[in-house]
Structures are given as structure tokens and as C-alpha cells.
Amino acid sequence: MSVHTINANDWVDRYSDYLYNYTIVRVNDHEVAQDLISETFLAGLKSKDNFKGEASERTWLISILKRKIIDHYRKKNSKKGKAEVRMAYSSEDSEGDWLEEQVGDDSGKNAEDNIENEELGLAILQCLETLNPKQASIFKMKTIDNFDTDAICNEFDITPSNLWVIIHRARTAMASCLETNWL
């Protein structure tokens, strides 16, 4: 087993998307998620001497992030009264239409699907870590962010045929990485 060491400069490139996808399903707010991730990286930097290298960097960062998310909810809950629900009634007659108001939204209907989706997403990002960084970012831009071939070629200063070779290698690696559990 190789000994894990800390390289804070690569953190954002390597882990921010993983941490973001982990966070966004839990806090459901883009800005808050970003703040929590920044805080996590900073806390990681501060305590990097405590990192024993027993777990992978990602696992270690996730353990910090989990605490940040819990803290976030604690803070939110301590601001009591803000969570009070106010109903606006259009007229006095409509006041007390309980049944209609109590119909839950259906966001929780596919809770199991959502959990599976999250696991799948994190598995994909974990596999991306096994590619070399340039390959990974090109594959991500092309496949997840749906950038144009031209745009990526410009950004990385490569020809389209370079791009397709990289994509092909990345896809082959990703497929074999995801094969056992997801394909």
C-alpha cells in the first residue's frame, strides 16, 4: 500500500466535484454547499498534520465535511422562529382548507431512486480519480458538462483527433471501473 500524503493544491481539482455532489443532496443550496466545501478544505489544511494517511484523502475530507454539514443544520435550527410556516389566504373563506394544504409535495416520492442516484454519481466521480488529471477533466467537460468538441480543443490546445483518443481511453477506463457494480 502506498502511503497517502497531502497535496492541498490538487485538492480542489481532484475532490471539489465529489464533495459538491455529496453536499448538494444534503443541503440543497448551491451557495451553502460551496461555503461548506471551502470550509472543509480550510479545516483540512489546518489539521493536515493530524492526517495519518490511514484513509484516503477523500474519505478524510468527507469525514470533515460531514461534521460541517451537521454544524450547518445546528446553526440553522438554533435560529428559532424562522422556521415558522405562514400561510397566505386569499380570502377569509378559504381559511381552513386543511386537506389541500396538507398534501405533501412529491419530492420525497423517489427517495430510494435518489439514494441510488447519489451512490452512482459518487461512484462515477471516484472512478474519475483513477484517470490522469488532464484525461479526467477533458472527459468531465465532454461528458458531464456537455461542452463542444471545439471549445475543449481550444481550451486544452489539442486537435479533435487528440480529443477523441483521450475520450476513448477515458471511456474504456471508466467502463471497466464501473463494470462490476453499475454496468
Binding site: N9, V12, L45, G121, I124, T143, A175
Partner: peptide, 27 residues
């Protein structure tokens, strides 16, 4: 199948500007 799986995961990524500002904060 790989394409489908990646599409189904509905992954979100941070934009490069957002990553840069994060890097700056860190450094």
C-alpha cells in the same frame, strides 16, 4: 450503457470560476 449511467447520475460540477475562487481562498 456507460453513457446512460452517467446521464442517469445527473452529476453536477462546479464551474471553473467557482473552483478558481476556491483555490484562491485556500492558498
Amino acid at each position: 450503457k456507460l453513457s446512460k449511467v452517467i446521464k442517469d447520475a445527473k452529476l453536477k460540477t462546479l464551474s471553473s470560476a467557482e473552483k478558481d475562487s476556491m483555490k484562491k481562498k485556500l492558498s
